[in-house]
Amino acid sequence: MRQTYFVDHALTRQNDIIISRRADDQMGLWFPVMMGIVSQEVMDFATVEEVQLYNELANKKWELTHGSEED
């Protein structure tokens, strides 16, 4: 067994955590695109108000297709 295995594993795990956090931080910009509400090109130039609107529309679509959390 290599002695550096633990270090390699620890560094890989930290990278996974960092990537996950970065994805979570950007979810407000990706969610409307993933839900098919708007294209990435439109999101790149959207104002804060437009991003909020697109996210609300994406949430509504999610609720219609998957049910709301209140159900």
Rank of each mutant, 00 (worst) to 15 (best):
F31W: 07
A23F: 11
P32Q: 05
Q52R: 08
A10P: 00
A23C: 07
M1E: 12
E70W: 15
M35N: 06
Q40M: 11
Q52H: 00
L11V: 12
I37E: 02
E70F: 15
Y5M: 09
S68P: 00
N59V: 05
L29W: 05
Q40N: 07
R21W: 09
D44K: 02
G28L: 02
L11A: 05
I19R: 14
V51R: 05
F45L: 07
E49I: 00
Q3G: 15
M35H: 10
R2G: 13
V7Q: 13
S39C: 05
T12V: 09
G28Q: 03
Q40D: 08
F45Q: 08
D8W: 06
E50C: 01
T47K: 09
V7N: 08
Q26N: 13
H9K: 13
V48T: 11
V38W: 03
G67N: 04
T47P: 01
M27P: 01
I37C: 04
M1Q: 13
W30Q: 13
T65S: 06
I19Q: 11
A46R: 01
W30E: 12
V33N: 03
G36P: 01
Y54V: 02
N59R: 12
E63L: 08
I37A: 01
H66L: 04
T47R: 11
D71Q: 10
W30D: 11
E69R: 10
T4V: 12
W62R: 06
E63Y: 09
D71T: 09
A10F: 09
N55V: 02
V51I: 13
E50S: 04
G67E: 04
V7E: 12
T12P: 00
S20N: 08
F45M: 07
G28W: 03
N15R: 15
L53H: 06
K60R: 11
S39W: 07
T65M: 10
T47W: 04
L53K: 07
V42N: 04
D25I: 00
G36D: 07
Q3Y: 15
A23N: 12
M1D: 10
A46D: 03
L57G: 00
R13W: 14
V51S: 02
F6M: 14
K61M: 02
A10G: 05
K60L: 08
Y5Q: 14
M34F: 12
I18A: 15
R13C: 14
A46H: 04
D16T: 14
E56Y: 06
F31E: 04
M35G: 06
H9P: 00
E49G: 11
E63D: 12
R21N: 06
Y5I: 09
T65H: 04
I18C: 11
A58K: 01
M27V: 00
K60F: 05
D8S: 07
Q40V: 07
T65Q: 09
S68M: 08
N55R: 11
K61C: 00
H66G: 01
V51M: 06
V42W: 03
A23I: 09
W62E: 01
M43D: 02
V42M: 04
E70P: 04
N55T: 06
Y5C: 06
T12L: 15
M27Q: 07
L29P: 02
D16Q: 15
V48N: 01
Q52S: 05
L29A: 09
Y5W: 15
D16S: 14
N55Q: 09
V48R: 07
N55M: 09
L64H: 08
V48F: 11
R13S: 14
M35I: 05
E50Q: 10
H9M: 12
V48H: 06
L11Y: 13
